[in-house]
Amino acid sequence: MHVYVVGNMGVDQTFLIDELPEKGASILGQRISQDLGGKGANQAIILARCGINTTLIAGSGDDSHGAWCRNKIAQESLGLFPTQPLDCATDTSIILNSADGDNANITTTTAAESLSLEDIKTALAAAQPGDVLLQQGNFSFEKTRAIFEYSRSRKLFNVFNPSPVKAQFAKLWPLIDLAVLNSVEARLLSQGRQEPMAAAQQLLNDGVGMLVITLGAEGALLLGNGQQHHVDAAPCRVVDTTGAGDTFLSVMLASSLRRGVAVDPQALRHAVAAAAITIGRSGTLSAFPSRQELVGLLTC
């Protein structure tokens, strides 16, 4: 079993602020870290640390940031395609981390969009039926759809984490075997259903195979294939929520793959425990559980 993460990687620069700004506000902040980031890179790294054969398909630029990112990836146990830089700037994210542990992110997608569909098809040439393709919301709707359509033609298992969210993503559900969303994304992509259960039912009606909705401190919901489960969040001290969603998704998926089963409540319990570790630390890559922590958690 192999997971192909098609997405982005870049540099995360985190600023500590008192509170998230309102429109038009000018605020003071302190840059507290620079770390490898990008939802694609985050999820691929955690999957690999869980012992899953993983390839990250993500572009990086021909600048110092790109070289720095590629060096960071080389220190992890996963494949990278392409290994050479693209003729563009490396993507960056500005993370505003408020004193209460909440955050807001601003992300560029220049390098991600510079990776062509043909490049991605080349990277997927070795994929076998039943392998997993995991994609986030960093590409245009047209490119996102084309990747999932190609994956479906190769009989891969399509997993979608539609973040950053785009309204058009609601048209993709018949291509998706497993969707993982937070409550805001679920509301926006379910014709405005306010309650998570109502949103989930709409998404299932629209064609998604299985669905997980994360609810922050209230845990997570799993629905589909005739099942409905709620798992409580793990207790933790909130330091920085950056990357918690990526940790949750990757550990949940790894748990199911390692046990050879569909996503189930045990996978969600593993995921919330891992996310609690990330939430209790500052940064992005530096906050993720280690390989030893994850393998120990997944054997419980």
Rank of each mutant, 00 (worst) to 15 (best):
E195W: 02
S190L: 07
L181T: 07
Q227E: 15
D177H: 14
Q191D: 15
D232N: 14
V184K: 03
V180T: 08
P196H: 09
L204M: 06
V180F: 05
D232F: 06
G216K: 10
T241K: 09
V238Y: 09
L203N: 08
V231M: 14
Q202D: 13
E218K: 15
G243A: 07
G192P: 06
G245Y: 08
M197V: 13
S183L: 00
D206T: 14
G192Q: 07
L178R: 02
L222Q: 10
L189Q: 07
N225S: 11
A233I: 11
V239C: 04
D206S: 14
L221S: 00
G224V: 01
N205A: 14
Q227V: 15
G216R: 13
A217G: 15
L222I: 11
G224M: 01
V208T: 08
H229M: 08
P235Y: 05
C236H: 12
M197D: 11
A186M: 06
A179V: 05
N225E: 13
D240V: 08
A199R: 13
T214I: 00
M197K: 10
E218R: 15
L223T: 08
L223Y: 07
Q202H: 15
Q202E: 15
Q202L: 11
H229D: 12
V208H: 09
G216A: 10
L189Y: 06
T242L: 13
H229T: 12
M210P: 02
L175G: 03
Q194A: 09
L215F: 10
L181M: 14
A199G: 12
L181D: 01
R237T: 10
V212K: 04
A220R: 00
Q194F: 02
L223F: 06
H230C: 10
T241H: 09
T242W: 12
A217D: 15
N182V: 03
R187M: 14
L221Y: 03
L222H: 12
V208W: 05
D240K: 10
V239I: 08
V212D: 02
Q228R: 14
L181S: 02
P235T: 08
A217T: 13
A220M: 01
P196L: 09
R193W: 04
S183R: 04
A233Y: 11
Q227P: 04
Q191F: 13
V180S: 04
G216Q: 11
E218V: 05
Q194L: 09
L211N: 03
D246W: 08
A200Q: 03
A233T: 12
A217Y: 03
M210N: 12
H229Y: 12
L189V: 04
I213E: 02
V208K: 06
I176W: 05
L178S: 01
Q227T: 14
L223H: 01
V208F: 07
L211F: 00
N182D: 07
V239R: 07
A217I: 10
I213P: 02
N182M: 04
